[in-house]
Write a protein that binds this DNA or RNA. Structure first.
Lengths: 211, 211
DNA sequence: CTGAAATTTTGACATGGATCAAGGAAGCTC
DNA sequence: GAGCTTCCTTGATCCATGTCAAAATTTCAG
């Protein structure tokens, strides 16, 4: 009923439209969901982190491309037994509902970003989200310097933010020039003043710090 | 435990950040979810149609503004009893999960639209989605003429599509000039050739017709 | 019917981000 | 450590969409 599968970074896990005869939980690594138009325009529509769920009960066709961003380990369940489990243990459905509602909120926050934010605000928002996630894990004080590693290429950032990679590069440079962030190399980012970064996101300044 | 509330068109049902001490199901009418930035930029992030659900188990703060687009009737449940119900009857959680997954898919389709589509493609996509929904209800043949009423102002369209209302107006005029749609008055739209409209959405041409 | 308010269209112009193009930096392989 | 290859930056230019302004149309109360 349950088995593990591994994928290398960059490998496609499922193609949009393919039949998906299992559901899975991410054990390790990061995978991304994306949609691609016929002419190649691409938009990332979601991120799967460890403990996130892939696939949905009652549908076999995958609606998006799923790509391994890092090496990924999945814990897969065949569809039949899994749906059995859902019917018999209410907590599974409830837990899945919680997670799906969180993903929906994240997607809707992203709608505002894609629909209404400027390029600079988009970059600042992405950096703030990543920084916040890492800071939460590290139990770090938000008020002082904080350094983290950007886990994605400029192109991946562009695909998330609905921009071109040139614009991403320019805006990152601009934020650096303006002292909002510092860079060591291309990927290591330091935030000297978190509230300064938050000002640049365009979001309400009084919003709660923790997500 | 259960009671009804009514709202007039245009009225705000909940403000973002307010405490929401009930959950509800839409009985009649259409409500929209939106987020507004401090400087007034606004993005619609979802639509509630009859049978859709408002609020979520385990959280009291509303994450979005909820506005009645038409007169709306809600069937409200107090939070405590509802969460009881969820724990005891597995089908409720499962049904809610189904609905949430559908909303998530819709939101992700919208991410592609907002992030990567041109203004013309956005308008065509919106018209196609509305037309499809009405056609599905009317059991109408997709190949021939089809007329429907646009249930929103140009400004509301702009808020959905991440455009300005001037751009919406111009692109609607352009689609009319090019014969993709016809207009009787401002709000009544005729689609002479549905596949022609679909070509303008930028979506895969071979995608299934029925959502 | 009449006038005021709301909605939509249209025009002129500005601009943010895309596009096209070139070159630089950083990893990897051998 | 030389030479690929991938990733990133920067510059020049263009164009889709935003902005500002005004007029046209529709709606609706009285």
């Amino acid at each position: 009923m349950k088995y593990y599968r591994e994928f290398d970074a960059g490998q496609t896990i499922v193609w949009s439209g393919d039949e998906l005869n299992f559901v899975a939980s991410v054990v390790d690594g990061i995978a991304s969901l994306s949609q691609t138009m016929e002419d190649g325009r691409r938009q990332m529509v979601g991120l799967l982190l460890p403990s996130d769920f892939l696939g949905r009960p009652g549908r076999t066709a995958a609606p998006y491309d799923v790509t391994a961003s890092t090496n990924v380990t999945l814990c897969c369940f065949r569809r039949g037994p899994f749906e059995q489990l859902m019917n018999t243990t209410p907590h599974v459905a409830q837990r899945l509902l919680e997670m799906t509602l969180d993903e929906l909120d994240a997607a809707r926050e992203w709608l505002l970003l894609l629909g209404r934010k400027t390029a600079r605000e988009k970059i600042a928002s992405l950096l703030a989200i990543i920084a916040r996630r890492k800071a939460a894990i590290a139990q770090h004080d938000h008020e002082s310097d904080f350094t983290f590693d950007l886990p994605m290429t400029r192109e991946a950032m562009a695909d998330y933010l609905g921009l071109t990679l040139e614009t991403v590069s320019r805006q990152v440079s601009a934020l650096k020039r303006d002292g909002v962030i510092k860079l060591q190399g291309k990927r290591e980012v330091t935030i000297p003043d978190f509230s300064r970064l938050l000002d640049e996101t365009g979001d309400d300044s009084d919003g709660g710090f923790l997500v």
